[in-house]
Simulated scan of single mutants.
Amino acid sequence: MKPRTAPAELPAPTHTFTRLLRSTPRGARLARLLAARQLAVWGWPDGHEVAETAVSLVAELAANAVTHGRVPGRDFQLRLTVGPGLLRPDTLRIEVADAHGGRRPDPAAPVPVPGPDAESGRGLVLVDALASRWGVVDRLYCGKTVWAEIDLAHGAAPPRNRAPGRNR
């Protein structure tokens, strides 16, 4: 007869949310709204520090995708991931992928700060300030994915007992 052992604790699920959106200003706005809604479903309601930081990052990355990464007729993709399936389990990862292979920001280079009268150019300054890490990777067939990660403080992760559903 085998000795009885306590059941192993199941790891927290990896939560992933992915959407294709039109490469238009309206698509960028929808990315921000969908991210806020999904983060609330995961346990970070509007006003929570994680939600505020993540929504700001989504807004900047999506705006850059539709402004600088737009290819006519091609959409951009938003992906949010959190959980033990990531390289760093206590991390929220935001990815925005576009179809434009050129104009790649370099996270290793200092982000140039625009002058006080400049009308644009602050997006990556904000990303660099808000994200714990960020970078760019090539997509398999065309384009690039700009990603940003937020390190989650102890207790900031979504509830472990929440059952993942579709896109949750």
Score class of each variant (00 low, 15 high):
residue 1 M to R: 10
residue 1 M to E: 09
residue 2 K to I: 08
residue 2 K to V: 09
residue 4 R to M: 08
residue 5 T to I: 08
residue 11 P to V: 07
residue 11 P to Q: 07
residue 18 T to I: 06
residue 19 R to W: 02
residue 19 R to Q: 09
residue 20 L to N: 11
residue 20 L to F: 12
residue 23 S to A: 15
residue 24 T to L: 03
residue 24 T to A: 05
residue 26 R to N: 11
residue 29 R to I: 02
residue 30 L to G: 00
residue 31 A to F: 07
residue 31 A to E: 02
residue 40 A to S: 15
residue 40 A to W: 02
residue 40 A to M: 01
residue 41 V to C: 04
residue 42 W to V: 03
residue 44 W to Y: 12
residue 44 W to S: 07
residue 45 P to F: 00
residue 46 D to A: 14
residue 47 G to N: 07
residue 47 G to S: 02
residue 47 G to R: 02
residue 47 G to F: 00
residue 47 G to W: 02
residue 49 E to T: 06
residue 50 V to W: 00
residue 50 V to C: 04
residue 53 T to G: 00
residue 55 V to W: 00
residue 55 V to Q: 10
residue 56 S to R: 10
residue 59 A to W: 07
residue 61 L to Y: 04
residue 63 A to Y: 14
residue 65 A to F: 07
residue 67 T to W: 01
residue 68 H to K: 00
residue 68 H to C: 05
residue 68 H to N: 07
residue 73 G to I: 06
residue 73 G to M: 06
residue 73 G to Q: 05
residue 75 D to L: 10
residue 80 L to R: 01
residue 80 L to V: 09
residue 81 T to F: 01
residue 81 T to N: 00
residue 82 V to Q: 07
residue 83 G to P: 01
residue 83 G to W: 00
residue 85 G to M: 03
residue 85 G to P: 04
residue 85 G to E: 01
residue 87 L to T: 14
residue 88 R to K: 08
residue 89 P to H: 10
residue 90 D to W: 02
residue 91 T to R: 13
residue 92 L to I: 06
residue 95 E to T: 05
residue 95 E to N: 11
residue 96 V to R: 05
residue 97 A to Y: 03
residue 98 D to T: 09
residue 99 A to Q: 12
residue 100 H to N: 13
residue 102 G to P: 05
residue 102 G to W: 11
residue 103 R to A: 15
residue 103 R to T: 13
residue 104 R to A: 13
residue 105 P to R: 12
residue 105 P to C: 12
residue 105 P to S: 12
residue 105 P to E: 12
residue 106 D to F: 12
residue 108 A to G: 15
residue 110 P to C: 04
residue 111 V to E: 03
residue 112 P to F: 08
residue 113 V to R: 15
residue 114 P to I: 11
residue 114 P to A: 12
residue 114 P to G: 13
residue 116 P to T: 13
residue 117 D to W: 11
residue 119 E to G: 14
residue 120 S to V: 11
residue 121 G to E: 12
residue 121 G to F: 10
residue 122 R to T: 14
residue 122 R to G: 14
residue 123 G to V: 09
residue 123 G to Q: 08
residue 125 V to G: 06
residue 126 L to K: 11
residue 126 L to G: 05
residue 127 V to I: 15
residue 129 A to H: 14
residue 130 L to P: 04
residue 131 A to T: 09
residue 133 R to H: 15
residue 134 W to P: 06
residue 136 V to F: 03
residue 142 C to G: 06
residue 144 K to G: 00
residue 145 T to P: 04
residue 147 W to A: 05
residue 147 W to V: 07
residue 148 A to P: 04
residue 150 I to F: 01
residue 151 D to M: 04
residue 151 D to K: 02
residue 154 H to Q: 10
residue 155 G to P: 08
residue 156 A to L: 05
residue 157 A to M: 08
residue 157 A to T: 10
residue 161 N to T: 08
residue 162 R to A: 15
residue 162 R to P: 01
residue 165 G to D: 12
residue 166 R to N: 07
residue 166 R to P: 10
